[in-house]
Design a binder for these strands. Structure first.
Length: 879
RNA sequence: GCGGACGUGGCGGAACCGGUAGACGCAGCGGACUUAAAAUCCGCUUCCUUACGGAGUGCGGGUUCGAGCCCCGCCGUCCGCACCA
């Protein structure tokens, strides 16, 4: 893209961002104005952007949420709050291990080098961060505390261990993350992935389902969308557990199967029962049935990701078993079916093909009866058919004995009542149950670059927590990545330790924790001052909850739900007092940019492309045409990135900040364009000129005169209103509206300045109003373009720094007008205007309107049918 | 399939609780300044119409004195979830 180089201009009146920005950053840094102290008497405000993964370098697209958070932080500081605005690094994770393999380096070295680079890039953006509280989750002091918390959770019963399936690469002999499985094959080896069971650690998040669901109602400053996504994810349902008695099971087998159903009303439509391949009864049967065993293995093939499971065709295996119908209907056969999930409900279902798509598909394939039992309202029972597909709507029961004629909810209730009161073997046959989709959180990862799980496995004592005085369990440095598998597992010495309980030779847990654990409490770590214990109750209680959390919508479910669970659990064990970590949440949109490809189909960087006036694009310095693609999320692979350094050198970071806040509402995706950044540059220069012009016309600050004329009063109204309105906009994170308002004011202010310039002299009241306007303008833009604001502040002779100044107070008297201009409608169409005193009564307004010529013409001598006067708003005359 | 959001000029988007639709910016056009250019400043810029005037917030209806906003029915786009019994 062709870009002018504004900074190469030597015109002295121009604002020189490249010179000013580093200078102010140095001054802020030296004075430590963004360092936050605990125990400050001012009210607290905690603003936080989701911390980044140190992947290498940032591009300007990453900057948007940090800039938004920075505007809030700076604004709240000006409003008198003690603001905490920290930054850290989500530093553990798989990419570091991949980099280690590719570059033959250590994951820690790679990570810390990236952190160093990205820290400098973030500093370039002029963010008002308290860098003294910086943390990296891969720091032993951080993950050591996490191990301590893990052990406390374990002792309090929030953690347990069980077998669970993983993706297994049989060639590389390694566990794969879901994203490493591509089309059912290992990403590196290309081998067909298998599901294999491993003993793994779980957090009991599903026990918290109900409170996590209920807690959503308290999160009023969260987007409804995110709350809804979490609600669906938790997936509460109400149903019935029903015990089906087996009629022909061998004596050594269980004699019944328990199923969960949300549709007990359709029991008379049941034509089969289906067990999950992982169901204990399936396993018991498979032990003596090689064909079933083969079927179960067939079901196991393929990855564990839901995407893969869900695309499989329905398959079943008839076990030959039969169950009695609990309400006296005919017996039904028992199948094992691949589509029944072991993790949900009881791992067994009853199938009612007439009213469920999956059951319908299954019954059709295996030629099982399809008996409709719910008749849509108004349908003719003789005509109604489900031959073309199941019916899952409301209606009236039929073909259902004692349920016939009842509505679906009434039938559900009737079945529940009947089965609850039917006792078999001391227990009711049916029991009402609430079920949740949410499953326990598996945190074991067979990886090196993560927080070691602080447990020692002993042959005789079982899993034993690492004693407090041996924490943190540090990652060994001397590891290699030249072969697949977990380096911790094959390290020669690391895992061999004595059992803390009996002293016998034992083995360390070699799994590390899911990195979502790291990000589930980092915001609590920021609360305690540097050099102190990572999780201090007093500090955490003082700062939490985060008042404004800002990040991408992609974390709407997992990160935010896990953090909510983690903080609730910390609260239960007495480590913190709050229950919800984030009081306010905002999800910002991405920065997108056009993509460019050359003739060979190779991606090009924006700076390699030149736009011609005729609308075509070519490679810089050539005639080679370039294909311009739709704007997409900035990404390294597509090369549609803009590095922050380039923007800073060309226009200055204030331009980038202003541009990122302009035009597009912050929750939507925003397109980065050269026209946009140039517009921001023009604006920055314009502010600079407005301030310069002000000082030229009114060189010295003066005390407020006793009286103001019409011109100066009008200007003061505009500037005082600006301060009030922008405060409101920023408070509501409507940055694009705030920007538009500043533009509007700049237009008015510019007009006032040129009018003053044309007049021979500037009266004292106008001189005061001009300087006041400039000062308010500078204060109002300070959170958004902080460097420019400092430079202007200096020119205006402001005390101290713009960054530490107070938000300008608006004189209430200047915010209200004493007269108001009302539009006049005739039959709902605007035909004129009238200016009346603000205090005018509706009757007075009505009289004034009727006296107007345009009304007399419209009425043509007739009396109006009706006149609606909405005070301060509008007048509508119905002719 | 289920759930949700959105649909306003050439473009990004404003419009508070149902009350002047198109603020502000971008792009474009015209003008001033300049030897010239850049920069800057001024003006125009929803559509139709020479004008008067009329139409207009995806489409069709409705409620209302008045609808971008509320209700009903469509169409389209985007997002999330999905064998959850």
């Amino acid at each position: 893209m062709t870009s002018p180089s504004p900074q190469t201009s030597t015109t002295t009146e121009r604002y020189n961002a490249r010179e000013a920005e580093p200078r102010w950053q140095k001054i802020w840094d030296e004075r430590g104005i963004y360092r936050t102290a605990n125990g400050d008497p001012r009210p607290k405000y905690y603003v936080l952007e989701m911390f980044p993964y140190p992947s290498g370098r940032i591009h300007i697209g990453h900057g948007r949420n940090y800039v938004m958070g920075d505007v809030v932080a700076r604004f709240k500081r000006m409003k008198g709050f003690n603001v905490l605005h920290p930054m850290g690094w989500d530093a553990f994770g798989l990419p570091a291990e991949n980099a280690a393999i590719e570059r033959n380096t250590h994951p820690g070295k790679w990570t810390y080098e990236n952190i160093a680079t990205m820290r400098e890039q973030l500093k370039l953006l002029g963010l008002s961060l308290d860098w003294s509280r910086e943390i990296a989750t891969c720091d032993p002091s951080y993950y050591g505390e996490q191990q301590r918390i893990f052990i406390e959770f374990l002792k309090a019963g929030f953690v347990y261990r069980r077998e669970s399936e993983v993706n297994w690469d049989p060639v590389d002999n390694t566990v794969l993350a879901n994203e490493q499985v591509i089309d059912g094959r290992g990403w590196r080896s290309g081998a067909l992935v298998e599901r294999r069971k491993l003993a793994q650690w779980f957090f009991r998040i599903s026990d918290a389902s109900e409170e996590l669901l209920a807690g959503l109602d308290t999160l009023e400053r969260w987007p409804d969308k995110v709350r809804l996504m979490q609600r669906n994810w938790i997936g509460r349902s109400e149903g019935l557990h029903v015990r089906f008695a087996l009629e022909n099971a061998a004596a050594e087998l269980p004699q019944e199967i328990k199923v969960y159903t949300t549709r007990p009303d359709t029991l008379f439509g049941a034509s089969f029962l289906a067990l999950s391949p992982g169901h204990p009864l399936t396993e018991a049967l498979a032990a003596g049935d090689p064909a079933l065993k083969a079927f179960v293995e067939e079901c196991r093939r393929g990855g564990t990701s839901t995407a893969e499971i869900e695309t499989q065709e329905k398959m079943g295996y008839d076990t030959g078993l039969k169950v009695a119908h609990p309400l006296g209907g005919p017996s039904v056969p028992v199948y094992v079916a691949n589509f029944v999930l072991m993790d949900y409900g009881t791992g067994a279902i009853f199938g009612c093909p007439a009213h469920d798509q999956r059951d319908f598909d299954f019954a059709t394939k295996y030629r099982l009866p399809i008996v409709p039992v719910v008749l849509p309202t108004g349908a003719d029972p003789a005509q109604f058919s489900v031959a073309d597909g199941p019916y899952d709507g409301d209606g009236t029961l039929f073909n259902s004995q004692f349920l016939d004629g009842k509505s679906v909810p009434h039938a559900k209730e009737a079945v529940a009542l009947r089965l609850e009161n039917e006792i078999r073997g001391n227990e009711p046959v049916g029991e009402r149950a609430v079920n949740y989709r949410l499953r326990d959180w598996g945190i074991s990862r067979q990886r090196y670059w993560g927080c070691p799980i602080p447990v020692i496995h002993c042959e005789s004592c079982g899993p034993v927590p690492v004693p407090e005085d041996q924490l943190p369990v540090r990652l060994p440095e001397d590891v290699t990545f030249d072969q697949p598998g977990n380096p911790l597992d094959r390290h020669p010495t690391w895992k061999h330790v004595a059992c803390p309980q009996c002293g016998a030779p034992a083995r360390r847990e070699t799994d590390t924790m899911d990195t979502f654990v790291d990000s589930s409490w980092y915001f609590a770590r920021f609360a305690s001052e540097p050099g102190t214990a990572p999780l201090q109750k007093d500090a955490a209680d003082a700062w939490l909850a985060v008042d404004q959390y800002i990040g991408g919508i992609e974390h709407a479910i997992l990160h935010l739900l896990y953090s909510r669970f983690f903080i609730r659990t910390l609260q239960k064990i007495g480590r913190v007092s709050v229950k919800e970590p984030f009081a306010g949440l905002f999800t910002q949109g991405m920065i997108v940019h056009e993509t460019y490809k050359d003739q060979a189909g190779k991606w090009l960087f924006p700076e390699e492309v030149e736009k011609r006036p005729d609308g075509t694009a070519v490679r810089v310095g050539t005639d080679e045409p370039v294909t311009v693609g739709a704007p997409e999320k900035m990404s390294k692979s597509k090369r549609n990135v803009v590095p922050p350094e380039v923007v800073a050198d060309t226009y200055g970071v204030d331009c980038a900040r202003w541009f990122m806040l302009s035009d597009t509402p912050p929750e939507r995706d925003s397109e980065w364009t050269s026209a946009g950044i140039e517009g921001a540059w023009r604006f920055v220069q314009r502010i600079w000129r407005l301030v310069g012009d002000t000082v030229a016309l009114a060189p010295a600050a003066t005390a407020a005169p006793a009286d103001f004329g019409a011109e100066s009063t009008a200007l003061r109204r505009a500037s005082h209103r600006l301060a009030a309105n922008v405060a409101d906009d920023v408070e509501r994170l409507r940055f694009n509206v705030a920007v538009a308002r500043v533009h509007g004011f700049a237009n008015e202010f510019g007009d006032a300045l040129s009018a003053a310039r044309k007049a021979k002299t500037v009266a004292p009241d106008l001189a005061f109003a001009l300087r006041e306007a400039a000062s308010i303008l500078v204060s109002v833009i300070a959170p958004m373009v902080p460097h420019l604001a400092e430079e202007c502040w200096t020119v205006l002779g402001g005390a101290g720094l713009a960054a530490t100044a107070h938000w300008p107070a608006s004189d209430p008297a200047l915010l209200v007008d004493d007269s108001v201009t009302l539009p006049i409608q005739i039959n709902g169409k605007k035909r004129g205007e009238i200016t009346v005193p603000k205090a005018a009564s509706p009757a007075e307004v009505e009289q004034a309107v009727l006296a107007l010529d345009l009304i007399a013409e419209a009425l043509d001598g007739r009396a109006p049918k009706r006149i609606i006067v909405v005070p301060q708003r509008i007048v509508n005359v119905v002719a």
